[in-house]
């Protein structure tokens, strides 16, 4: 009998160990993904599906001495394009490329920090879900199931050789797909067309070395890394969301600076934007949803407050309800 109890205990320990091992290996895969996404040269066509729509786009990513270059262009419908380099983002708008966001000079949001990984571990149950074939490559499937219904389930398919993310899905607690990305064709490494850089209308890209950045003036909103304490708080963030930063930033189309407070649980970020209510009639309160991102905005305490995050609608509304000004 005693032996049996001992054996039972042993089995439990081994099972717990196995789970801890599986969880660790899922987290290791994520680290690989975050590394590979920045360091790998690749070009391919991917499908983005959300709500009832499907969009096809081409993505090209490569690393040069000047840093990472990335271009995403839509393949159906009117021409749409996003170019990213060194914390700067340009978008094709009115027949020209316009700089729309810049974190120049500020270190990029760090790749999955250890603290983020531990957040993930405590908020989600991690499971390896076998090897599947995506875009002709073998991929390790990993599932992260949240421990509450305030966030979405994440499923990832990671290329076993390169560590590139081949497919990613966001699911509800009822296992319905909220949005998903999947490569349908992908070339990893090899000869990747970089000629568009030289032909680009963006001077920063044509210079290609990345050293001339400081000399180019731009009217785009510039984010300064000034962390502040605005006195605004979200009194009841869901468990596991940690404040990542709080800053005052200029924003496109806004005259006054906007306060942005960012929280993250490792997978999902939630931003709270606070700005003075300028009485604009167009600032209708409401909930807006785009794939996994939900936006809720409304005037409260004489300010226009906007909550944006990759969390279910009820979660952004709850967070909104808990926003207060202390002091």
């Amino acid at each position: 009998m005693r032996l049996l109890a001992l054996l039972g205990g042993l089995v439990l320990v081994v099972a717990a160990d196995a789970y801890a091992g599986e969880k660790q290996s899922c987290l290791d895969w994520l680290k690989t993904v975050a590394f590979a996404a920045h360091q790998t040269d690749y070009t391919g066509v991917f499908i983005y599906q959300y709500d009832n729509r499907v969009e096809t786009s081409r993505i090209t990513h490569f690393v040069e001495a000047g840093g990472e270059y990335e271009k995403v262009e839509s393949l159906d419908g009117p021409k749409r394009e996003i170019v990213r380099h060194h914390g700067q983002v340009w978008s094709y708008h009115n027949h020209k490329m316009v700089e729309i966001d810049s974190h120049k000079g500020q270190s990029k949001f760090p790749s999955l920090l250890p603290s983020q990984l531990s957040l993930l571990g405590s908020n989600y149950q991690a499971k390896l879900a076998g090897i599947e074939r995506i875009a002709g490559y073998d991929a390790q499937a990993i599932v992260f199931q949240p421990k509450d219904s305030l966030r979405y389930t994440r499923k990832f398919w990671v290329h076993t050789d390169s560590g590139l993310l081949l497919k990613a899905a966001v699911l509800t607690d009822k296992n319905q797909v909220v949005e998903q990305y999947a490569f349908s064709q992908l070339q990893i490494g090899g000869k990747i067309d970089r000629s568009w850089l030289m032909k680009s209308a963006i001077p920063e890209l044509r210079s290609k070395s990345g050293h001339h950045h400081g000399s180019i003036s731009s009217s785009s909103p510039r984010v300064h890394a000034g962390t502040i304490n605005s006195g605004w708080v979200a009194a009841s963030m869901p468990v596991g969301f940690k404040k990542i930063m709080e800053m005052q930033r200029p924003m496109h189309g806004n005259h006054a600076p906007v306060i942005q407070i960012v929280f993250s649980d490792g997978f999902s970020a939630v931003s709270i934007f606070i700005e003075p209510d300028d009485g604009d009639e167009d600032d209708v309160e409401g909930l807006y949803s785009r794939g996994a991102v939900n936006i809720f905005h409304k005037v409260a305490y004489g300010h226009l407050i906007t909550v944006v995050g990759e969390v279910p609608p009820l979660t952004v509304m709850r967070i909104f309800d808990s926003v207060r000004h202390n002091g």
Binding site: H61, I100, D101, A269, S271
Partner: peptide, 17 residues
């Protein structure tokens, strides 16, 4: 708002652009 939020989202780190 989406744009201002996106750069800080962990998902940008995983699937980039």
């Amino acid at each position: 708002y989406l744009m201002a939020h996106q750069e800080f989202s962990p998902s940008t780190d995983m699937n980039g652009g």
